[in-house]
Simulated scan of single mutants.
Amino acid sequence: MSVVSTRLKTKEDITQHEISALKTRFNLADAHTHQDQSLTQQKIVDSLPELWYRAQGQTQYKSEQEFIKAFFTFHGQEHALKRHDEIYLVYAASVAMHITATYLRKRDMSVGLIEPCFDNLHDLLKHMEVPLSPLDESLFRSAKDVYANLQTAAAKVDAIFLVDPNNPTGTSMFANGAQTFMEVARYCRDHGKLLILDFCFAAFIKTAGGSRVDAYAILDEIGTQYIIMEDTGKTWPLQDTKCATIMSSRALNADIYSIVTSVLLNVSPFILNVVTQYINDSSDDDFESVRSVLDINREAAQKHLHGNFLKYLTPMVETSVAWFEILRDGVSADDLQAYLMNYDVYVLPGKYFFWNKPQTGQKYIRLALARKPEEFKLAVETIAVALENYHE
């Protein structure tokens, strides 16, 4: 166990853990989608040759615009489509984040970054030498005090960077309507702050049975300056065949566009055709194929793991990950992760999400839910047995 523990503690970030997790029998580390195709999604796979030649026979622009219209319409963000030529497509959300970090560095802007959050946000900004200050996600849980709280917490930063719903906790400004978000947008407008939004998990507002408010319309109506990133990679079982988007308020568009074009020319039209089919499929079945897998696995996780050792933390918005608090005194997330490795199960310790105070995260672990239900059930049953046998 000590050898395993030492090896795990040398990891520098979540991604390095996720790479190692790919070697284990039960990989519950990365939040990428690893579930089977639904019956209708299987038909999309069967049609891949047709989609290949369709992409080959139409313009790049047509493939892009079909994807943009399908994605933003499906998510209820139709206001953005008024500027559809200023929605830029990139290979992955991390590329959109790198573009954003480049903009911030060029402008010598400081950032208030939500904590906890997925660690590559912090790492990308840190590597670009963007000054960072933590904004505790508790600031954004209700509309009542958020404006006043930000007057203190964000007074010295130039930009506010939020993830909604947040990964890993599921905290969301939209859980009880749009008022909290509107207050944040109003604060940013009134105090000249750039609002940066990572909506890469926003699809789970829909899978949880809700509907997304049109955030782009709200921001433009209030007059807030913004950069927004969205993604497809954490939603559909695409084997990382994905596309992300980045869009900014009109005043920032020229600067963002110049950075985008320095990074890439275009996303593969074949990939765009494939992902568009998955979006349309979920539009037809009201996200049932995605929702059902997550519901089954979330129920299994709670049934087998919620108890005296671990406590399932109910999120404001149910996403594709489960966040557990460690209740056993003297057991850190690092300890538990290393122990579970002996059972060929890989989970993520919470310390990487708490980028400013890693020790705070030692009482949490994260489990990915987007897995084949039969395999996920075996995984959580294995964890349950392991916890019964745990001796300090």
Rank of each mutant, 00 (worst) to 15 (best):
V157K: 03
D158W: 09
A338N: 08
H304W: 14
A178W: 02
M128L: 12
T245L: 12
I160Q: 05
T24P: 02
E230N: 15
F72N: 02
Y343C: 05
R250Q: 14
S63I: 04
A178P: 00
A215W: 03
L327Y: 02
L272M: 05
A55Y: 09
L162R: 06
S38P: 03
D36W: 03
A244P: 03
L121H: 14
E115I: 05
R298P: 01
I259M: 09
G177T: 10
D344W: 02
L310P: 03
F287N: 04
A148D: 14
D190Q: 15
E375D: 09
V45D: 01
G209N: 11
T382Q: 14
V184Y: 06
T180V: 11
Y352F: 15
Q16Y: 12
R186I: 01
K23N: 13
Y346K: 07
A92I: 00
A384K: 07
M109W: 11
H34F: 12
M182V: 01
L197R: 07
F353Q: 00
P116S: 09
V275Y: 00
T224P: 02
R366E: 13
F204A: 03
Q179H: 09
F174G: 00
R212E: 09
D335I: 02
S20D: 13
Q60W: 11
D329P: 01
Y312W: 15
E86V: 03
A148H: 10
W355N: 03
A215F: 07
S38H: 07
S249D: 08
K69V: 10
S211E: 15
A29C: 13
S211C: 10
H306M: 10
D145A: 09
Y312A: 08
E115M: 03
D108N: 14
E18A: 04
A143N: 02
D329S: 11
P49T: 05
K69N: 12
E299G: 13
